[in-house]
Design a protein around this nucleic acid. Structure first.
Lengths: 203, 203
DNA sequence: CGAGTCAAAGTGGTCTGACCACTTAACTAT
DNA sequence: ATAGTTAAGTGGTCAGACCACTTTGACTCG
């Protein structure tokens, strides 16, 4: 008649640690009790404590320093994305990957539309006029700049991971494409951006 | 003579398991070796094996059955991420996650445009007519179906992970939105999909 | 012969205790 | 006071022991 589901110990520990952080109002940089102390206070084995801490570390809530202790850290969800990526990137086809990469670039290009000013547009032009770069490198630099401008670390991390993995088979658009995009930015023609991407083929 | 940096054991185990999955071409549903066997073959303590498995479980790669074994899983909504991501998530991070989530949903909706047939459209309608679901749940089911139809593992996984993170604060569109989208599918009106998403607000 | 029963083996879940590696802080010697 | 050394604290890892649960297969019993 135990209505309580067979919850694992480490999940209970997770709850307790969370409560501890809230009660003591710990902020990033603050230190958590040691594993042994937690084990003692929470009445759980140290291995269970560690499983809970490991989960928190992977999610990016805490940071452990060997010999130092465990500390609250600034929240970075993309840690989990990285872990996930190591498993699925290798079993993902090139086509699937490139589809996601291109849609991220397209959406990033649209996200930054409103904040673009003269200086930033010039920066984009400069990249495309840098004859020391190959087309591939220009493409990378061009969109790296755009993705960073979105000020969305999460999006940037995913795009970066895909890039690292697909470095060998990733392509680029036609030279005119980039110039057209800059022109659309200049003329404040937001609706046409979508079409520009859709009509473009990668090389 | 591996000059490899002080990498933790469980991280090496993760690599090995990943390789094992690749070499043996394991698919969702297949069974992984037991913890003791892995400990033996990889020359690592069982606790380290467990830390690696726990990490994989956290991101939904595997599923463990007490007394049964460890299995590769397809989609394994796991509550740990949700549990931990709710109380320390900054508004900035929440916003970033939602932006990426929504753009993935939009692009997924466009990717499946060509392959939609009567049966699939009916399925989408059925979801929206299921009055036993809340709007939030309808939204989730609606786009879960769409994302799966893209047949893009990578996209599906990322979307699934973001969902775990944002489950507590994610929203939905207006009821008319979903019906309008279905109508656009029916009338083969691809160009208007983009606009439909852009004009919509989340609740 | 077939179906149901049940004991044994296998597997994940957890705890304990022991080392090791590294960091920090206190202490000493100069 | 400063630098160097030492001891204590802490995370990292391993081994072994139980426990709880599932699966398997041999063994009944009909």
């Amino acid at each position: 008649m135990s209505m309580s589901p067979k919850q694992k110990v480490y999940q209970g520990v997770l709850q307790e640690i969370r409560k501890f952080i809230e009660v003591n109002d710990l902020k990033p940089g603050d230190k958590l009790p040691s594993e042994r102390e937690l084990s003692d206070k929470l009445g759980a084995g140290r291995s269970s404590i560690r499983e809970a801490l490991r989960a928190m570390e992977l999610i990016g809530i805490i940071e452990t320093r060997h010999g130092g202790g465990t500390f609250l850290s600034k929240y970075r969800p993309y840690h989990t994305v990285e872990l996930l990526s190591t498993f699925i990137l290798s079993q993902t086809t090139k086509d699937e990957l490139l589809i996601v990469k291109e849609l991220l670039e397209k959406e990033a290009a649209k996200l930054i539309f409103q904040q673009l000013d003269h200086v930033k547009l010039e920066q984009l032009k400069t990249i495309m006029n840098d004859s020391s770069l190959t087309m591939k490198e220009q493409h990378y630099s061009f969109f790296k700049y755009i993705v960073e401008l979105t000020d969305n670390q999460f999006l940037a991390r995913i795009w970066g991971l895909i890039n690292e993995y697909s470095k060998s088979f990733t392509g680029h658009y036609s030279r005119e494409f980039y110039m057209k995009l800059i022109k659309l930015y200049k003329t404040q023609n937001y609706p046409s951006i979508e079409g520009l991407f859709n009509e473009e083929k990668t090389y």
